[in-house]
Design a protein around this nucleic acid. Structure first.
Lengths: 210, 210
DNA sequence: GTCTGTGAAGCAATTCACAGCT
DNA sequence: AGCTGTGAATTGCTTCACAGAC
């Protein structure tokens, strides 16, 4: 255990973590790998194998304690520290995102927003500080921001990403329908393109019916 | 070739397709696998291998024609037909999504929106038809909707998903921070949870610095 | 020389199956 | 009996390396 966690395992841990948070809110105290399978669709042996990478936490014969497993995942994935994030692009989608209930448990905090349109910068009603886009480098460095969310039109996405990376951001979530490439190998990128996801679903539907 | 396309390949095709659309708009006529690597980060031999699953399209010695490759992907993934989609949850995020420029080339069309809040249903200003949530089953069947987008609070997400699947939807994109499980093996789900993606990035950042 | 297409090799992740604990 | 943890077997993906086309 605890050698090198495979990336698919890391991603599954992140889903399971979410699930554990929700279970905890519902007052559930224990889960077995079979119940986790029932709720996520991930086979129970895969879940047990995953958990084996971060050491023994289960109670043999009676499953996992929700709180303990949750904490164990948190510690092993290095999530036990609040990270600062910023968002670039405060159009309809961007401003929708910052009001979405995602920042449970002090994991992340969106501390700044950027937009190239001065009017947006002035009129947006939000609790975070808003700046014009040309101040990205300054603000990111000054505030120690580690994560960036991109919600600008596709043509500008790579340019914005480059600026964020240049300023020291280490992880980017990209909503623009454009493929963004990391220019530094210490910065990770997750593309979250709605059109792309619908396309993946369509393709899977198409395959199935061959 | 054309046996069974591996799922990671399907997903890469969907990104490459997006990239090809953007290149075409810029007037680019040809690309080599090396250039695709440069723009996506996916190694050129992986790209060539992927393309080999859908048959020969490249011009030996001089790369791929953008338009031809794009069309080839479209045909092989079964994307050459417009599919109807609906969105459930028209809060800030939901209404941001429907105005996001994602529906290029007649691949998808969002034809209906649902919200449980009657006020939202009445006041939202949008070009799509809006209905109260209890009409999901009816409307989905009547309009022949194949895809669903969920943007409701986490506690309601699985229930909404179940209703969509019940009505015959074959693919769901879920924005709620809750793990949604497919109850039918002919329905595919893509979870697009912003908090989850930030968490994955944080975990990767953490691993790196071990 | 340049770049694609692909069998073969190598590697990583999933699945199996069972030992061991309660 | 019930459920976890894990080496071993298996599957499936990626990478290699080179033949073949231009």
């Amino acid at each position: 255990m605890n050698k090198k966690i495979p990336q698919p395992t890391v991603i599954r841990f992140c889903s399971i973590y979410q699930l554990l948070c929700n279970l905890e809110k519902e007052g559930v105290k224990k889960v077995s790998s079979a119940e986790l399978e029932e709720k996520t669709g991930v086979p129970s042996h895969t879940i047990r194998k995953d958990i084996s990478f971060i050491g023994e936490v289960g109670n043999t014969g009676s499953g996992y304690e929700v709180a303990k497993l949750k904490q164990h995942i948190l510690n092993n994935l290095g999530l036990n520290r609040e990270r600062k994030a910023c968002i670039v692009g405060l159009g309809r989608l961007g401003s929708g995102i910052i009001q979405w209930p995602l920042l449970a448990e002090g994991e992340f905090r969106i501390v700044a927003g950027f937009d190239s349109n001065i009017n947006t910068v002035e009129t947006i009603k939000t609790s975070i500080s808003v700046f014009p886009s040309h101040e990205i480098a300054d603000v990111v460095k000054r505030m120690g921001i580690e994560l960036g969310i991109i919600a600008v039109p596709p043509a500008r996405a790579q340019e914005v990403a480059d600026r964020l990376m240049e300023a020291g951001v280490k992880g980017i979530v990209n909503f623009a329908p454009a493929i963004i490439k990391s220019r530094r190998d210490d910065c990770f990128i997750r593309n979250m393109d709605i059109g792309g996801e619908l396309r993946i679903l369509s393709a899977m539907m198409g395959m199935r019916s061959q």
